[in-house]
Simulated scan of single mutants.
Amino acid sequence: MTHHGLFVGLVTLDLIYLAQSPPKNNQKIVATDYIVAAGGPATNAAIAFSHLDSTDKTQNFSTLLGIVGSHPLTQLIRGDLQKYRVAINDLDSTTKNPPPVSSIIVTQASGERAVVSINAVKTQADREAIPPEILQNIDIVLIDGHQMAVGIEIAQMAKAKNIPIVIDGGSWKHGFDKLLPLVDYAICSANFYPPNCHTQEDMLAYLTQVGISHIAITHGEKPIQYLTLGTNGIVNVPKTQAIDTLGAGDIFHGAFCHYILRENFISALASAAKIAAFSCQFFGTRRWMES
């Protein structure tokens, strides 16, 4: 069986360093390891989705819809995505602007990370840039909200074709109020606070009111809170010795897209949590796939 996922959103170049700690003011430090990789929520999710077909007798294909461009740095992004069998559909292939670059320092002892980045605020695409046949043969869509105008248009198109839509709700962004009523699965972090929402209960009530039937709120290594078709509960996250938590949420979303095409909502959350927890045992966002 073949499944094809479309992942809409941010494409970055990540420079990831492993060090004893982030530098203090006017301090220089020497990293013990480093990785250069494509990054961004939708990007990491697409790679995880594509990789997970090796765990069963299915085949996954990922298409990433975002802005890459033609700056020399983008060759690093394209090479990384090609290695992991992720097709790029570039929303602005002619731009010579450098891609957003993230500098990330992972603390060796704890796995915590410090991040300096520029998101897609300066590189927003118009919905006219969407290829007309982008949803052909697509089984699931994930939208991370970083290309909001494109994401809303894609969601409307997917809704008309009964293609399930997942959102990665890392933090509230302008335009989510228009996107959320189109969504089937809202997978949000504990920091995703819609307007006038101050608690987890407020968040669940808001998402339910806009018509989302399946909602999950992640809390890092703590249990996932869910609400599905009026039933709420928790899914425990496997305990692990974290080496690096960078990208674990993105990997969780990509794994969820893989499992929700095969399992029910609660089971898909539990399966995705196992993959994300496993990924935290390795430095960077790729090495978990090599094990």
Rank of each mutant, 00 (worst) to 15 (best):
I77G: 01
I77S: 03
I77F: 02
R78L: 04
R78Q: 10
G79T: 08
D80E: 07
D80S: 05
D80T: 04
L81K: 00
L81C: 07
L81V: 02
L81W: 09
L81I: 02
Q82N: 15
Q82D: 08
Q82K: 14
Q82F: 11
Q82T: 14
K83T: 14
K83L: 13
K83W: 00
K83I: 10
K83P: 00
Y84R: 06
Y84P: 00
Y84T: 09
Y84M: 04
R85M: 02
R85S: 15
R85V: 03
R85G: 05
V86T: 15
V86Y: 03
V86F: 07
V86L: 07
V86C: 09
V86M: 07
A87W: 03
A87N: 15
I88M: 05
I88P: 06
I88C: 04
N89Q: 12
N89V: 03
N89M: 00
N89K: 04
D90G: 01
L91C: 06
L91G: 05
D92V: 11
D92T: 03
D92E: 14
D92G: 06
D92L: 06
S93V: 12
S93P: 13
T94G: 03
T95M: 12
T95P: 00
K96L: 10
K96E: 13
N97H: 06
N97I: 03
N97D: 13
N97P: 03
N97C: 01
N97F: 00
P98K: 14
P98Q: 14
P98V: 07
P98S: 12
P99Q: 11
P99T: 11
P99F: 07
P99G: 09
P99R: 10
P100F: 06
P100D: 13
P100C: 07
V101H: 02
V101L: 11
V101G: 05
V101K: 06
V101R: 03
V101T: 14
V101F: 05
I104L: 09
I104T: 12
I104S: 09
I104R: 05
I105C: 13
I105G: 09
I105W: 08
V106E: 08
V106K: 07
V106R: 00
V106H: 09
V106T: 15
T107C: 08
Q108W: 02
Q108D: 11
Q108Y: 02
Q108S: 12
A109E: 15
A109I: 03
S110K: 07
S110N: 05
S110H: 04
S110Q: 08
G111D: 14
G111V: 10
G111L: 13
E112G: 03
E112L: 11
E112D: 15
R113W: 02
R113M: 01
R113H: 11
R113I: 00
R113Y: 06
R113C: 02
A114E: 10
A114G: 08
V115A: 10
V115Y: 06
V115C: 15
V116L: 15
V116E: 03
V116C: 14
V116D: 04
S117C: 10
S117K: 06
I118C: 04
I118Q: 12
I118P: 00
I118L: 08
I118N: 08
I118F: 07
I118H: 12
N119P: 10
N119R: 13
N119S: 13
